[in-house]
Design a protein around this nucleic acid. Structure first.
Ligand code: SF4
Ligand code: SF4
Lengths: 149, 149
DNA sequence: GCATATAAAGATAATTTAGTCTTTTATTTA
DNA sequence: TAAATAAAAGACTAAATTATCTTTATATGC
């Protein structure tokens, strides 16, 4: 449903939203390390996001990527619009073009509410809100160092 | 989330479940036409599914693909296991490896119930049940010929 | 100003997924 | 038994995605 590129981009932006500031920037290298994302891949994505005004950056020593309070007004859909070609959720589960409530596939009644919920969140919740939620709920952007089995 | 291959395979099997029988077989060509799936692509998938005993086939004139009552006892997960490499739903939305209820990402509380619902259906509802549901609910496997705008 | 750190840009390579084509084998029907 | 039909098998091509590498531009601090 989401490409690696999108997943990487979302996690990176949320990471910056949670941790960065004008005074506290993160280089591509540290983001790559922290979130376990291929360095050159995430670097390119971050550059794209800077151009799209989703995040900010500065070059040189002590430079890096960060988010301003203005950046934080964006939402996740802004990220997806930038990274992903078309609409992420269409065509969806059964691969029918232009289906929907009128022409449902056999799993539409399960998929549709989910799509609506996730889209609502991605469209109407700002990155800032996400950052707050992440801090409050203690949700994860990376599982680096966490015991997996 | 699902590859084209999986989507094609599921739709084809459900199509056969709804329409075919030992006496009423469908060639790769007619399935390709009916569901608007590339001919040689679906042919290969159908052969795979025959080998995996998900559907049946016979060669020669009046031959083709069909489902037996025994075939219909399979479920959608059987199809996915055959077509897809690993587990379709892992890693999922945020691309975190081995996450879950204990280590939730920021959208886990939306994604998890959906994953559970769709997996429940794919695992515990037989292809036969699906066919009945499709007939009763009039859900779609193809939108060929239906007005799209 | 010079050395250094870092983003920016973009070329290139690898991998995976998707799709096509050709040949062979089995089955049916006439 | 011959001709026709359709699946089986597998080689091949194309496209998209993922990932890497190299070079250039810019800001910082000494
Ligand atoms: S009918 Fe609904 S669930 Fe099925 S493919 Fe279309 S939008 Fe997705
Ligand atoms: S935490 Fe839940 S929703 Fe998020 S990636 Fe893991 S399983 Fe998917």
């Amino acid at each position: 449903m989401l490409s690696n590129a999108s997943k990487y981009a979302i996690r990176s932006v949320l990471f910056l939203a949670k941790n960065s500031s004008k005074e506290n920037k993160y280089g591509a290298k540290s983001i790559s390390d922290e979130l376990e994302i291929p360095l050159h891949f995430i670097a390119k994505l971050l550059q794209q996001l800077v151009k799209a005004n989703v995040i900010s950056s500065s070059k040189g020593p002590r430079g890096g990527f960060y988010t301003t309070t203005n950046d934080l007004n964006n939402n996740v859909c802004t990220i997806l619009d930038e990274i992903e070609a078309g609409d992420v959720f269409e065509p969806c589960f059964m691969g029918l073009p232009q289906c929907g409530d009128e022409n449902p596939c056999p799993v539409h009644h399960i998929v549709a509410p989910f799509k609506e919920a996730i889209l609502e969140k991605f469209k109407h919740q700002s990155i800032a809100d996400f950052a707050i939620e992440i801090k409050e709920d203690g949700t994860f952007l990376s599982l680096k160092g966490i015991d997996k089995k």
